[in-house]
Design a protein around this nucleic acid. Structure first.
Lengths: 204, 204
DNA sequence: AACTTCGTGGTACGGTCGTATCACGAAAGC
DNA sequence: GCTTTCGTGATACGACCGTACCACGAAGTT
């Protein structure tokens, strides 16, 4: 066999090119040729590693989700060792807001894919159910954990509050994206509810 | 002059065809020929009343917003004469959830347009700022009104709560659309917060 | 009755898009 | 060292899309 290139790595490079160009011009407007140009390879290469555009888009979604998961992990590790439930919950919510280029891209493309999945049955809708469910479970666990430790309002319905917080974060992110709101005011709204649930005292 | 057709009415018919077919196959997948076929007219007619596709899409967005405004008005009138602030607020929030075919279509297409407006500078981003701002003002006013009448927690920050409620309703709608959640659980979350703000007693 | 103007249909054109085909160099196995 | 297979490039093909063009009937005006 010849050059023995790492296909998976190459696919990741091309998928990142897809994400970049789609973040710039919109997912609907990106073609195979655009991805090839952005990645600095020939159109044939994109066809070679992803046989069809549909597979490229599928891979792009998975790549996007993986990158985001890694970003969440990094953010959680960055809040310091042994973080309290509230600090963890706050990091979880704030990381999804479009504050820099990458999170802006993620928010835009995730929403684009979600919209596509409603009408294109070929595109897997599963990530848009499983991933939010996982986030919901994690946040519910954090609130319960804080309640057990006496660090949160014991009367709060943990799951309902988790759903609410995540729902708010998502729409606030979108409103930042379209220019209706700025990051500071979105953050303030989330802090208000974190204070309500965890109590204003336990910010650590 | 010949047949003297009402252009505005004809445009509305075509725009409704656009909304229908876009709701079925996705906004990105709809072409001039699809709209023409859905409306039962020739391609040339669509070109005649909307010179370009861009203008058709613009008109479609405006038509969508108008239809939704009308729907909100009807819903508010349906809650009965002289409704309390809480009932009005509840109607305002619930009407945007995708519960039937039309609201499902509205939610999907509104989100599609919003996503488009981020990258296509030709498409007006203004509706996605002005309309949510108006809803936010309206809901804030309702909460303040209830507070003045002693029908809501006087300590609540009306604007923050209004932003939160609308943000939750939007994401809950999307999660219904993608099949993550059902209408009942979304409604329960909203009711929980309405009870929190207005108090469980004053449901009327 | 001739003329003008509006509404409508059919069809052609240029461009782009996803995909397929042909060609060729480079490396590993016999 | 020849062959086979992998990686890569260039280019062609068929379909579709938005738009432009041409033609014609129908209804008012003079």
């Amino acid at each position: 066999m010849p050059k023995r290139v790492d296909h998976e790595e190459r696919r990741a490079q091309i998928a990142e090119a897809l994400v970049r160009v789609a973040g710039r011009r919109g997912l609907h407007a990106v073609g195979m040729r655009d991805v090839a140009a952005e990645a600095g390879v020939s159109l044939r290469l994109v066809q070679y590693y992803f046989e069809t555009k549909e597979k490229l888009l599928h891979y792009g979604l998975r790549h996007l989700a993986d990158r985001f998961t890694a970003r969440v992990g990094a953010r959680l590790r960055a809040v310091g060792p042994e973080p309290g439930p509230r600090a963890t919950a706050e990091a979880l919510l704030l990381v999804s807001l479009p504050t820099d280029e990458e999170s802006r891209r993620f928010h835009l493309l995730w929403t684009s894919y979600a919209v596509l999945s409603v009408t294109d049955e070929k595109l897997a809708a599963q990530p848009f159910v499983a991933d939010p469910d996982a986030a919901e479970d994690a946040l519910t666990g954090l609130i319960r954990q804080a309640q057990d430790a006496g660090l949160a309002d014991p009367g709060a319905d943990a799951r309902t509050e988790a759903i609410s917080l995540l729902a708010m974060a998502a729409t606030l992110g979108t409103s930042i994206l379209v220019g209706q709101r700025d990051v500071a005011s979105a953050t303030a709204v989330l802090h208000h509810h974190l204070d309500r649930i965890f109590g204003p005292a336990g910010k650590g």
